[in-house]
Structures are given as structure tokens and as C-alpha cells.
Write a protein that binds this DNA or RNA. Structure first.
Lengths: 132, 132
DNA sequence: ATGGGTGCAAATCCTTTGCATCTGC
DNA sequence: GCAGATGCAAAGGATTTGCACCCAT
């Protein structure tokens, strides 16, 4: 409806979706600024928050860092480089028997809704870097 | 070696280990204060950081919240209540074929080191609460 | 003129740092 | 007296909020 609002929100959403690597709010801001130089950081945060609430994007984090945003909202897993912090999507579905999940959820005292596998290790770049 | 230091560090470690529910730094501070009233929040943060670096405890987070600390350092999975935010340990091992993990890691471009499964849902209390 | 969206700056919240002090050796 | 640890207060960094302004209706 509102033109301006649409433009800003669209730019933010496009950035989160198209940019690889699960950008932080600041990274989104910096990239969006190239399209909309007058946008403020607060607006980026506001829009990211809205989009997250609407379920259009997702917030992701590991507690030791700032929040990152993910344009993919389908269930998928992540791989995190413990050296450089890079966050990668796992492009394949990890087979995990539903029964095992349900049992685990029950054992923990939660009603299973969804799940995510996080893989920790060294990314290819960091492996190459440590050899050099 | 240093007595005082030992006392404070011991109290922090004991709190993280014994208190259920993956406390935040502030929660650790508040509980430790009951034993050592003069301790400062900064010291708690310093000790938590040291213990984390030493691998004695672990930091945990999901990006939308402050860091929490986990006294368990063995590989285990977590269940997160999406309503109240409660973080629970999964008391059973979720069967996940090593081969599937390795394949996923390779596909993502990471050398597999370890992994964690996160289960999302409603905890028992929240289920009861929403029925009431 | 009205309402929603915005930029800017100030405010918050969590965490880290600087520094003078204290403790045990 | 020295080195390491600590408390307090100030600093920092990320995110949110207050508020006056601006644009499309």
C-alpha cells in the first residue's frame, strides 16, 4: 500500500533472500543503503523484526554473536565454522527418523513441533588457510 | 592456588552445574551472590568466560536472547519451548547415522567436528497453561 | 488533516574493560 | 612488595524506542 514502506521493506527482504551467508542486521543495512541511501538502521531493524514476526524470514544465532537473518523459512539444517564463524546452509536433508525425534522430545518434556540440526566444524576456506 | 579466586570460581561452576535450566549470566550472578554476597557481576562474567575457554562449561544461545551457560560439556541435544523460551536437555541420544552427518557436512562445505540437534515445541507447562 | 512509515538521536540491555584495591605469598 | 583476582563504575556494541516530520490519501 504505502509506496515508501514497500520500497524499504522490499529492499530489506530482497537483501536477506538474495545475499548469501545469513547477514547480520548491520550487513543488511549496509547493503540496503546502496539502493536506498537515506534508510536508517532503526528502520532496517524494524523491518527485520516485522518480517520475522510475519514468518517471512527467520532470525538465527548462536548466542555468542549478533543475530543473523535467514531468507529461507523451510526446515533446513546449518553448518557453522567454529574458526571463522561462517554459517552455511546444509543443502541436503539429514535423515532423522521422526520416531526418534518424537521420543527425544517426549523425553525432554516438549511437544515436538520442528527441529534443526547444527553441524560444527571447519569450513573449506579455513582448512585451506590452516594448511598454508 | 588463590583462595578467593577458587571460592568464586567454584561457586560459579557449582551454580552452572547444579542449577537446572541453563542459567544466564545474571541468573548465575544472583544465585552465586547468596553464597558470596560481595561478588560483582563483572567477576561472574570473567569466570564464566574463563570456564568456557577452558572447556569446563559451554555457552549456549539462540541469538534472540542473552547467552546461557550449560554445565554439561558432553555432546547432547536440546529442546526449546517456543512459547516460554525454556531450554531443556534431551536426556536421550538421538540416533543420527554418522554417514548422514558426514555427507551433510561435506555438502555444506564443512569438515564435520560435532553436531547438535535442536527440537522446537511447547513444553509441558505451556501446554497445560494454554488449556487452562 | 490524517495515519502510517521514517530518520535521527537518545535510551536500553547485556557484556566487557579500566583501574585502584586487596589478598596471599 | 609482587602478581593475580576483584569490585565498582564507566565504556562498548547491538538493538529498541521516542518523537517530530513527511508523504500518499
Amino acid at each position: 500500500m504505502n509506496e515508501l514502506r514497500n520500497e524499504n521493506a522490499r529492499a530489506v527482504l530482497a537483501t536477506v533472500r538474495e545475499r548469501g551467508g545469513h547477514p547480520t542486521a548491520l550487513e543488511v543495512y549496509e547493503q540496503v543503503r546502496q539502493m536506498r541511501p537515506k534508510i536508517g538502521l532503526a528502520t532496517v531493524y524494524r523491518i527485520l523484526h516485522q518480517l520475522t514476526c510475519q514468518g517471512v524470514i527467520r532470525m538465527w544465532g548462536d548466542g555468542s554473536e549478533r543475530a543473523r537473518y535467514d531468507g529461507r523459512i523451510d526446515r533446513h539444517d546449518h553448518a557453522l565454522c567454529t574458526r571463522c564463524g561462517r554459517l552455511l546452509d546444509v543443502p541436503v536433508e539429514i535423515e532423522l527418523p521422526r520416531a526418534a525425534l518424537e521420543q527425544a522430545a517426549r523425553a525432554a518434556g516438549i511437544e515436538l513441533d520442528s527441529h534443526e540440526v547444527r553441524i560444527y566444524g571447519r569450513c573449506n576456506d579455513c582448512q585451506a588457510r590452516s594448511k598454508a
